[in-house]
Design a protein around this nucleic acid. Structure first.
Lengths: 160, 160
DNA sequence: GCAATATATGTAGTTAACTACATATATTTG
DNA sequence: CAAATATATGTAGTTAACTACATATATTGC
């Protein structure tokens, strides 16, 4: 197998390679939704799917849940509000909070997406279910990083 | 292990999770270089490392090598030229081409980075060498995608 | 050997995340 | 219970990749 310099650099370029793979999958994801005639952007997935599963959430708890900084979530919510897929209301107990939920249109969209998800899950399973399973690898790495960060581990080698 | 909705959605959010992991590693990468007192941004890595290994390349061949669109490479090159880490000259045979190479300063910087790379490689190995090896998983998935894209695979399921 | 096509580079504008800062409301503490 | 601190949301600006388009030079084919 011929290899380019970056792939050959292996662990050094791991961040680059993760991003490259992410982009590639995201672009094809958009095309799959299009093939189903569904007006949906992959970047909406984390917010909408979480609201689909958890119904009502505040901006920060939603951000924590999907692992985004809150301004990223706010800008997605703005866009989704314009699309009338979500709506928000004030929390009566804690008035700082804005509670976000799917609209009827949002719920309808998400339910029409279930067959698409089925296809995506199957195609992704096909791709990732190699000798080293990518999903499992991600889970394992994230667990390892939670225990001790990349930087902390590197620091131990620096001191030696 | 408690899980959030996105992680639980598994294969559906794979692109999101790859990106999240990439960001996390990149940020720590920057801090590691800082800890060594080296003025280096992780985003420079693909270009500089490739030039370190291959000496002289044109803009497009460099872009292909690192897997970036050529305008991305051009803007990195502009930045690196300002830092005096690379320089360019016209190809005498094919005058459309701009040949790029490391300067002395670039070569020096890269060679001072070898001990840092050593640390990064060790820390990364520690993190990725779990039951399912992340690097191997990426390699396997990229190979699978090269053979048949995510979209093409999904299309087969749509037709059924 | 010229017209059509392909390739190489460059510019402009977009995108989808981020950080830093600002403000309002809740909660905690002396 | 008021001051200090913490939390929730929002805005502005940045970043690091992208696509679309433009131009110049090479190559190919009639």
């Amino acid at each position: 197998m011929e290899q380019n310099v970056i792939d050959a650099s292996g662990l050094l370029a791991i961040s680059t390679r993760l991003q490259r793979l992410s982009d590639q999958i995201r672009k094809d994801g958009l095309l799959i939704y299009k093939a189903f005639g569904i007006d949906f952007q992959p970047k909406w997935f984390p917010v909408l799917y979480t609201l689909y599963k958890k119904s009502t959430m505040s901006v920060v708890s939603l951000s924590d849940e999907i692992g985004y900084a809150h301004p990223s979530t706010i800008s997605l919510l703005k866009e989704l509000e314009k699309e009338k897929l979500i709506r928000s209301k004030k929390d009566k107990v804690d008035t700082r909070k804005r509670l976000v939920e799917l609209t009827e249109k949002g719920i309808t969209l998400l339910s029409t997406m279930e067959p698409v998800w089925d296809v995506i899950i199957k195609a992704t399973a096909e791709i990732t279910n190699t000798q080293n399973n990518l999903m499992k690898a991600i889970n394992e790495v994230e667990a390892a990083l939670k225990e001790k960060s990349f930087l902390q581990r590197a620091e131990l080698y620096i001191k030696k």
